[in-house]
Design a protein around this nucleic acid. Structure first.
Lengths: 203, 203
DNA sequence: GTCTATATTCCGATAGAC
DNA sequence: GTCTATCGGAATATAGAC
């Protein structure tokens, strides 16, 4: 009934779509742009994905699945808190460096009131930080760390990992430093962020 | 030669455009959407702004001019460092709370390779943090604060102010708390962020 | 200054040949 | 599985009446 699809062509399209979307943004990316980037005829995109929406949702879904599951796994896992923070921050900065488009996409998308596909991906991943919150509360009770709202701590960690990478060109411009220097600063942060957080909460 | 334009209608259009763009994103906002929101005929938009691009650039320029000049003024100003950090963080969080769309827009826009208008706005504002960097270096030399890369400090401050507000719906979803609770957390941060930063750098 | 009507451009989707 | 040709719809810009 169904002809076997060429996986390599399909993968090629997804990669091209991802690349163009990073450059031009989600909504500004046209089917023609993607076809041009992939070096194939535009109608082939319709053959493989039928509609524009289907292709875009596939790319978006891939983006979201690329880092989120591992992130929550580490965060809710069994490592001792300080060790967990060290592992998580380095891992998370690496993830965002590989996909600087991901947080930008997530923030943009969640702001749009009607984003059924985003909701469906979230339903699938089921993100939560319950394990982390419980652990922090326990460490506070044991007086290993100072009293701090666990969610504020979570927000601090994420913000110090994500926004520096996401806003890299902005920081580079405002601080008047060039791209290699900025890259080095972000590299340094892989170790520094954890040290900062720990200094902040250590009892 | 030129007929006097009705300023109030023009302002009405800009406000409507801004509101719709926050909800739907920059590129997804159509001229018709803006006209509907403002309750006026779509062609009137063309009368006042001639092209879609002109209108969008006007809105974008307004957004950028809304917080950036004050931000750099405070940052490079004459306040003692700790006091400056307290004033800046509260001021900046308030600015972002009033315009959560601003950082998202700036990050999106700077990622697009060809953004001549963004460049022109930047050229106009001339952002720099030289005063802040000099002050931090002086405080380090005086051993008032620990040795820290001034730009890393700047990145930390901005990230702790901006991303929590920008990613508010994401944090709310991941942490499993409702909107009012999240709003309260952000309110608390107006004081807490400065305290955290100061604890972090105090010698 | 505002509206109606129209022109134009662009994009997505599909049919049909190969 | 891929290409050519074409249809249909949406969105912007403009001309001209009031």
């Amino acid at each position: 009934m169904k002809a076997k699809m060429n996986e390599s062509t399909k993968e090629q399209i997804i990669r091209a779509a991802y690349d163009v979307m990073i450059e031009k943004g989600f909504s500004d990316t046209k089917m023609q742009d993607i076809a041009d980037r992939a070096g194939i005829n535009r109608t082939v995109l319709n053959y493989y994905f039928r509609t524009r929406d289907k292709l875009y949702q596939k790319v978006a879904s891939d983006i979201l699945h690329q880092g989120m599951p591992q992130m929550f796994e580490t965060l809710n896992g069994d490592l001792p808190l300080f060790e967990k923070i060290a592992v998580f921050t380095e891992q998370h900065i690496n993830t965002i460096l590989k996909n600087p488009f991901m947080p930008l996409f997530m923030v943009s998308e969640i702001h749009k009131t009607d984003s059924p596909f985003f909701q469906s991906v979230i339903d699938n991943i089921k993100p939560n930080i319950d394990g982390f919150v419980t652990q922090v509360e326990k460490e506070i009770a044991l007086k290993h760390i100072i009293p701090i709202h666990p969610i504020q701590l979570y927000i601090n960690i994420i913000s110090l990992c994500v926004y520096p990478v996401m806003g890299k060109p902005l920081f580079s411009m405002f601080a008047g430093i060039d791209e290699p220097a900025m890259t080095q600063l972000l590299e340094d942060r892989k170790k520094e962020v954890a040290q900062m957080i720990i200094k902040l909460i250590k009892a």
